[in-house]
Design a binder for these strands. Structure first.
Lengths: 227, 227
DNA sequence: CGTCTCATTGACACCCTTCAAACGAAGTGG
DNA sequence: CCACTTCGTTTGAAGGGTGTCAATGAGACG
């Protein structure tokens, strides 16, 4: 199919400068055509204020979207896990930067294709809108967390959220570093670390090797996370 | 017109329990039919987790949308000024509570009407989506503010934003109280107040009577707000 | 075993919060 | 016209939670 071939051709757009290797072309669950792209750990996927030429669904790995101030202060807006979509825009440019947290494969959809699919099928348009609204809802919860919650509440909320989102057995491997956690939670790396050991001392969680996490008293943790 | 009459009938939905007096029926700039409703200062427009039966455009006055924790800590998500739309959802319930900041008139649109208009006209659907995306962009800027900015930067950002959004001569009347500002900025009322007097001492702003504001050095303020 | 990266821990400083009181403007009644 | 109240704002003093700076610890890898 020539269409598929055209889509699978190497990419040179501003958002995908440093693409490793375009993989097979396919269709998203939304029915939108696109192609897989692999990104190495910490590689930029797109930058803030770059033209929003692509939106992506995470296939494997994880992605952080964030904003950064001139002096380096960084705020992570969201971590996108497999199945999540990021980079949707209606305006011209991206409002956030996106980077691979770990080695990651995304399914990239061209803006043109998305717009066309939305215009052609009201149901696709409605789903894209619903995706955006879901991002907004999470963002509003995040505002409450950053504006009004203590370090302890923030960290617990994050851990509970991760366990909810990542299908796992009793033990979970945190997909992000302490620095990423800190920048997501509006804290410093030291405060995150101290809070985690404090939670462990209180037998609420168990940590192994920094990344391996077990919730030992999930009910108590959910209570702290809720408020 | 019977349709208009039906729309203008008094409302008893959970979101509009304490409605003062339904006013004239009309159409929104989006082309969606609806009706005007007046709310007194501090009156609830809808509550978090209530069925999202209405979305509203502010006609006059101002609206705050917010979340609240069990112990009373409150985070204001956004202030909606005349022309702004709030309360749009694709899910069943509202994710935020909404209250009138001052005596306010809103143009209320039934969820049914919105959904129908979006389904019938792709351009309306696209505009609703764009509205949601705009909320999301502002929310993401807000995250950066709450997570990473100092009290001084937060207050200045707020003031500059207000001056941008409110058409006014040299002097502006702040539409919200110090408590609202504090809950929007993730600070206490005292910190907001102290920061404002500090800005005044540095000749960056001038305050009169608590609410009347003049930016005396807008360029400098924009610099502080930007980072 | 050395190096690198990331996480933990400690000591101290500071920004913002907390608690409290005073202030000011607007409205009410004597 | 002047107490008096009320509500919102400002100011002050003190304390605490989190940040900063610095050192140590722990895996991963060559």
């Amino acid at each position: 199919m020539s269409a598929a071939l055209a889509i699978a051709t190497p990419i040179a757009g501003p958002g995908f400068r440093s693409v490793a290797q375009p993989l097979a072309a396919d269709r998203d669950p939304l029915g939108v055509e696109g192609f897989r792209v692999a990104f190495a750990r910490n590689e930029e996927i797109f930058g803030e204020q770059e033209p929003a030429e692509f939106a992506c669904r995470v296939v494997s790995g994880a992605v952080r979207t964030y904003k950064i101030l001139s002096d380096g202060r960084r705020q992570v807006s969201e971590f996108h896990l497999p199945g999540d979509v990021f980079g949707i825009e209606t305006g011209a440019d991206h409002n956030l930067s996106a980077e691979a947290v770990s080695d990651t494969v995304v399914f990239a959809m061209r803006r043109r294709c998305l717009d066309r699919a939305a215009a052609a099928d009201g149901e696709v348009a409605r789903r894209l809108w619903a995706l955006t609204l879901n991002d907004l809802r999470r963002s509003q919860d995040h505002l409450l967390l950053l504006g009004r919650k203590s370090a302890r509440e923030r960290v617990v909320w994050f851990l509970v959220d991760m366990v909810r989102r990542i299908p796992a057995a009793i033990e979970l491997s945190l997909p992000v570093s302490r620095q990423d956690m800190a920048d997501y939670l509006g804290l410093t790396i030291e405060t995150v670390s101290r809070t985690m050991t404090q939670l462990q001392d209180q037998s609420l969680i168990r940590l192994r090797g920094g990344r391996l996490l077990m919730l030992r008293d999930r009910a108590a943790l959910e209570l702290i996370a809720a408020a």
